[in-house]
Design a binder for these strands. Sequence first.
DNA 1: TTTTTAAATTTACAGTCGTAAACTATGAAT
DNA 2: ATTCATAGTTTACGACTGTAAATTTAAAAA
Lengths: 140, 140
Amino acid sequence: MKEVESMSRAEWQVMRIIWTLGEATSKQVIEILERKTEWKAATIKTLMIRLQKKHFLKAEETKRPYIYQPMIQEDDAIHESVNELFDSICCMRKGTAINDLIENSDISQKDISKILETLNKKAQTAPEEVECDCLEADLD
Amino acid sequence: MKEVESMSRAEWQVMRIIWTLGEATSKQVIEILERKTEWKAATIKTLMIRLQKKHFLKAEETKRPYIYQPMIQEDDAIHESVNELFDSICCMRKGTAINDLIENSDISQKDISKILETLNKKAQTAPEEVECDCLEADLD
DNA sequence: TTTTTAAATTTACAGTCGTAAACTATGAAT
DNA sequence: ATTCATAGTTTACGACTGTAAATTTAAAAA
């Protein structure tokens, strides 16, 4: 009963390598992840196969070794994950959550400016209060 | 090999009710969630039992019906979830992710001010660039 | 061409999750 | 004291995950 495939935590790690490299062989991914984690090569290969099944990765299979490429952009994937998580948080508490996140993340000067800009624009139309919706029926 | 219990998406919905009410009987939770979702009462009860096992909920069991109370604060739980997600995102992209989040969330004037303040403080010491760490070995 | 080696595929298995029916115990009503 | 209704517990089951060994296939080396 799952409509849209989602990427598991471990699969995400694999994608990060491939997003960063643009494309990669399983050997490359395995080398990097064996340094980053305790995973065995077979584990990493399993994750790559699952990512293929979910259409997050595709493999150029005309010759060995295969070359794997992402089928989804990193920013899109991040957008999905982050928004999915925030969808389940009480809307009254999202502001605090974001504040918290900012406090705990390294952010570049440039990104800070961008965020300031977004916020200032948002302040124009932002409500005084955001009501808790935890007890309300979902809008379908 | 799981160190810390985590709350599943469905369990989160149950917690939201109880956080908002402060405490609740299963009947109350069931009534509200039957309006919000398609879940059957038994499903909701299962979730509550799992939350007890994970020590996110406790039940006052001296008399029926039990009264359930949260064992973790909502803000702490949000902090955990959000930070866990952000831990797996490329640090170079967190700024954009946060910006995106702000664009997609309703935030109160007060929270906006607070975030602006945090950002301005952060700008004081923020790096020019944040490097991608996707290929690097984890610091253990 | 046979052998070795590297890469890819299959199979495995226990734990979590969404989902819920079946069963049991308790308190309230008769 | 018996009978219901309500609440709580057990059992279930398939999909998804983390984890990886075993097996097969293809390419490279001998």
